[in-house]
Nucleic acid binder design. Structure first.
Lengths: 195, 195
DNA sequence: AGCCGATATTGAACGGCGTTCAAAACAGTG
DNA sequence: CACTGTTTTGAACGCCGTTCAATATCGGCT
């Protein structure tokens, strides 16, 4: 058995990530197993270790894709008129989360083992998301001093993450009947303005 | 082998939770295994299933304890003068998280399997935490309308959870050099005032 | 065409996991 | 002392991530 050459390594990686995304969207992190992904793309488990260092690396790549997709939708949402941009971002964020809550939850539930630092590309992806938001919200932020903007945007993102995480895990509904989205608008309104 | 009667079931439960807490504090959710807990308390794995329905139930109980401990510290922190209460709560929160970050991260990383709803005692514990905060912050909230208070407090908690989660998983440091605590003060300041 | 070195792919194997359950060991009662 | 009822055990099951020697296929060479 070898060298089927049906697909290039890049194709295989894409196939594996697509399969992993399907499983994650349907069953969350618990169902995401090497053997399941391998079976879904028609290869043996060992093959995945030619494409990724470990299951953790695969999941990290999946989360990177998920964040990139969110980024795309946010960019599109920020194209409207500047006044309503913060609110549009919040709505796009919750639209995205509500569309595939289990896939989204993988971002929070997964942790690299040990002291494992996150790779550079992941860090850059996150920074890009923040920078994009700072730029998109520049009209809303108006006369804010330069050094106050990034912390506020970071805090805003963390708050939205907290809300979506609690919402997705069912814990938010235990303490609030208000929909997560409206709490998101509330927070962004207070932290940034115009949310 | 049986009926050693060394300990009552309640004692055993407490021992198991203590062992689980030690493991979680040292290694996070990944190291938290039935066999490890059992070995740590000097019993066979099967015995734990007389005390808890499943490992998930054990972890849920552990998280319940962790939240209760946080609650105790928050109550103590809110005893000071009303003006600085919001800030004191934020500091107590981050003190708690920073003392045992891996134990804290278990709260976010663990999810009940399937559609599994959370038990009533968990829900009540969470509600109690929120209600306590609403009451403690009553002086700060001043003339807020009654129906606006709870949503704001819930949003504040979610924001703090988001910050601590990103901080504990190492993702916050990737996009911000400001310490998590200061972002916490920022958010609470904006959402509640006086943070 | 036939061969060969290189390599992508396999699948069995290992240790560990959560969970179950029949058997066993004990405490308490009469 | 025997019997009952319960606690505790540990082997067993099916799953997991991961490794690696064996193997089947490819591209290039003669």
């Amino acid at each position: 058995m070898a060298r089927r050459n049906d697909h290039t390594p890049d194709e295989l990686r894409a196939m594996a990530l697509a399969a992993a995304r399907e499983i994650a969207a349907a069953e969350g992190l618990r169902g995401l197993a090497v053997r399941r992904v391998a079976e879904k793309i028609g290869y043996a488990p060992g093959t995945l270790y030619n494409l990724f260092d470990s299951l953790d690396a695969l999941i990290l790549a999946l989360n990177g894709e998920t964040l990139a997709r969110l980024g795309m939708e946010l960019v599109r949402a920020a194209e409207g008129n500047p006044a309503g941009r913060a609110a549009a971002l919040v709505d796009a964020y919750f639209d995205f989360v509500e569309r595939q809550p289990l896939l989204w939850s993988v971002i929070f539930e997964h942790r690299m083992p040990g002291e494992g630092d996150l790779p550079a590309w992941y860090s850059e992806g996150l920074s890009g998301l923040i920078d994009g938001t700072v730029a998109a919200l520049a009209p809303v932020l108006g006369d804010w001093p330069e050094e106050d903007r990034r912390p506020a945007v970071v805090a805003m993102w963390a708050a939205l993450h907290g809300l979506s995480m609690l919402a997705v895990s069912g814990k938010l509904a235990l303490v609030s009947d208000a929909p997560p989205r409206s709490l998101g608008h509330l927070v962004v309104n207070r932290v940034i303005g115009g949310g």
